[in-house]
Computed example of a mutant assay.
Amino acid sequence: MAKTISNETQDEAMKVAKATQKPGQTKEQTKLIALGVEKGIAEFKKQHKSKARDRDKARKQDIKSKMRANADSDNEVIEPEDKPSVQRLPWGLLIISWIGFIAFSFMK
């Protein structure tokens, strides 16, 4: 499983290795430390991507379950008790307005 490590990661690893370099440390030792840091960074990125995928899957499942719950609630039957009161309101307003119109016209 020989994956190539990006130049950015290699540069970052070399900076970390040089920053922690001890006096008298050879270039070869610094390169070995940089390789270890590269592997650590690569492993961290791999774990981070895996966790991000898992979070994304969980988020998508939550969205799907909420959509299913909403679809189920939309399919529920509305109770007949609610419909007559809603239908009476426009007719009641119409009748009241006509009574008001007739009363106004008789007042003249």
Rank of each mutant, 00 (worst) to 15 (best):
D56A: 15
K15I: 07
R88W: 11
I63K: 05
K45L: 12
M67Q: 07
E79M: 06
Q61A: 10
N70D: 06
Q21R: 13
Q29K: 05
N70T: 10
E76A: 12
F101V: 14
K18Y: 05
P84C: 08
M107S: 15
K3H: 04
I99H: 03
S65K: 10
I41T: 02
E28Q: 05
Q10D: 02
K66I: 06
I102E: 07
G36Y: 05
K22Y: 01
Q10L: 12
T20P: 01
S73L: 01
L94F: 08
R53C: 10
F104S: 14
A52Y: 00
S105V: 15
W98T: 14
K60A: 08
A58M: 00
K64M: 05
A103H: 00
V77R: 07
K51N: 13
K3M: 05
A19K: 04
E8V: 15
E28D: 12
K45G: 07
D56Q: 12
A13R: 00
I96N: 04
K60F: 02
L89S: 11
N75E: 11
D54Y: 07
A34M: 10
A19M: 04
K46P: 07
G40R: 06
N7P: 05
K108W: 03
L35A: 15
V86I: 14
I78L: 12
F104D: 07
M14Y: 00
G24M: 02
L93Y: 12
K60V: 08
I41F: 05
K46C: 06
A103P: 06
S97Q: 13
P80S: 12
L94A: 13
E79N: 13
W98A: 14
V77Y: 07
A58V: 11
A17F: 07
S65M: 09
K31N: 01
K64E: 06
A58G: 02
R59Q: 09
E76V: 13
I99D: 03
R55D: 13
T20Y: 03
A34L: 06
I41S: 01
K66R: 03
I78G: 03
V86S: 09
D82V: 15
T9Y: 04
G100L: 10
K64N: 01
Q61L: 04
K57I: 12
K83A: 14
L32A: 15
G100D: 06
D72G: 03
E28I: 07
N7E: 12
A13M: 09
G36S: 05
A17C: 06
N75S: 15
K66H: 11
R68A: 10
A17Y: 00
H48K: 13
D72V: 10
A52C: 00
T20W: 01
E79F: 10
A42I: 11
D56N: 08
E81C: 02
D11A: 05
S73H: 09
S85F: 08
Q21E: 14
L94P: 10
I41Q: 00
E8G: 10
